[in-house]
Amino acid sequence: MSTLIKKSLFAKLLALVKDTLTSQVVSLWKVFRHLWVATDTVQYPEQQPYMFPRWRGRIILTRDPEGEERCVACNLCAVACPVDCIALQKTEDEAGRWYPEFFRINFSRCIMCGFCEEACPTNAIQLTPDFEMAEYKRQDMVWEKEDLLISGTGKYHESNFYRVSGKAIKGKDKGEARNESSPVDVRSLLP
């Protein structure tokens, strides 16, 4: 029994020496060699990195091809937001469109996860490659709709929610959305 322990202890020590020589020394050498490997660092801001179009940076609200606000204040972005940094209130214009009365993103809380964009059924909220959003005052990181809304369509040029959904708005009557037949005449006797 005691020899067994001694043996195993000795084996342990041997393994330790071997390990030190092979593993540790080899890794020291391998890391040392990196002195001659070119660095990956990009010298921002002199050297501007290429930002991929689907980079998750500054959040914008876009407009549909007709130039109207795409956001219909459905609240899905707000509920998808893991840090609860989106707050908005629905209201309605005389055309029957829903739109946000206010739309607020607290960028001091935002983690740029892009869940809001993923949740958005109208492609209104989009993340852009802009990441230069630092402010000296935290209060300045609270963005309202006026700050978020852009004049263009963003990444998705064709998307137009009201042309697909069945809700009638001014300029698009019942039956004029995609794949719709004209409204039923209830008083007709025809099948």
Binding site: A78, V83, D84, F102, R104, I105, S108, R109, V142
Partner: peptide, 16 residues
Amino acid sequence: HRASGRTAMNADRNVH
């Protein structure tokens, strides 16, 4: 449990 907007609803008045 899924209420939204906690960190933004009052942020216009005070971000803290």
